[in-house]
Amino acid sequence: MFETHAHYDDDWYDEDRKELIESLLSSDISYITNIGADFATSENSVKLAEEFERVFAAVGVHPDDVDSLKDLSDEEALNRLRELAASKKVVAIGEIGLDYFEREAGQKNEEVRKRQKHWFMKQLELAKELNKPVVIHSRDAARDTYNLLKDFGYNKGVIHCYSYSAEMAERFVKLGFYIGIGGVVTFKNAKKTKETVKKIGLASIVLETDSPYLSPVPFRGERNNSGNIKYVVAEIADILGVSMDEVVEATFKNAVKLYELEDRVYGKLS
């Protein structure tokens, strides 16, 4: 199985990071992509990828972290990401995007959304410059995310932790994006996610956990890890009426294509 989105640099793994990753890569997990959310986590993702042969990295600044860039010019910030992306183990720019979720009382103001859109576009431009796919974080921002991607026209990547309607998923797929499905699909109340799986089928799905977050049933609320992907596989198989082996095979091929790893996975890994 190919874990397309995890955060093993998170503090939650400080006690057993190396042992856990080694055990995962010795079991059913063939590859892992560790995802950055700011400069520090992007740097840590690259370090992890360079430590483990079958771990890759994505580098980028999450929409909730764009304020960390306020003291840098656009070019200074992008140059730091360029330097990180120079590693051969970096396979994507991400996670980037828009997050309009109201974590505090009141609507996220337009100034915050404007900054998020600015850095979303700048990092999309960087991805296009470097010819790398993008890992998109989009929460409560379906219309703006879709319109910005459609208008920009550089459409290779994945919509991570997909949470919108099945119809919107079809629109993202038509642009050229894969849909990231993780532990949420196992939740009883995850009607939209289950409908999305049924609507788009295996051709456009990649597996993820977002570890250490979003553990599937029966581990909700606990620390997540990539070994729990098997519960996601089982749920997708049940929804589509196919075998778990079919889900694993199709999503593995999709992940390899998403991260443009055909030569390294099917040829000699380097």
Score class of each variant (00 low, 15 high):
residue 2 F to R: 01
residue 4 T to W: 03
residue 6 A to W: 07
residue 8 Y to N: 08
residue 11 D to Y: 13
residue 13 Y to Q: 08
residue 14 D to I: 14
residue 22 E to T: 14
residue 26 S to A: 15
residue 28 D to N: 15
residue 28 D to R: 11
residue 35 I to M: 09
residue 35 I to A: 09
residue 43 E to G: 14
residue 46 V to H: 03
residue 50 E to K: 13
residue 53 E to G: 11
residue 54 R to I: 10
residue 61 V to T: 05
residue 61 V to D: 04
residue 67 D to M: 11
residue 79 N to R: 13
residue 80 R to W: 01
residue 85 A to P: 06
residue 86 A to N: 13
residue 88 K to D: 15
residue 91 V to I: 13
residue 103 R to W: 15
residue 104 E to P: 03
residue 111 E to L: 12
residue 113 R to P: 06
residue 120 F to R: 02
residue 127 A to M: 08
residue 134 V to G: 06
residue 135 V to L: 13
residue 136 I to W: 03
residue 139 R to K: 10
residue 149 L to Y: 04
residue 152 F to R: 05
residue 153 G to K: 00
residue 158 V to A: 01
residue 158 V to L: 00
residue 161 C to D: 05
residue 169 A to L: 08
residue 171 R to M: 10
residue 174 K to C: 04
residue 176 G to A: 06
residue 176 G to P: 13
residue 177 F to N: 06
residue 179 I to L: 05
residue 181 I to N: 08
residue 181 I to V: 14
residue 190 A to P: 03
residue 191 K to Y: 11
residue 194 K to S: 03
residue 201 G to K: 00
residue 206 V to H: 01
residue 207 L to S: 01
residue 217 V to G: 06
residue 222 E to P: 10
residue 225 N to Q: 14
residue 237 A to T: 00
residue 251 T to P: 11
residue 257 K to P: 03
residue 263 D to T: 09
residue 264 R to M: 13
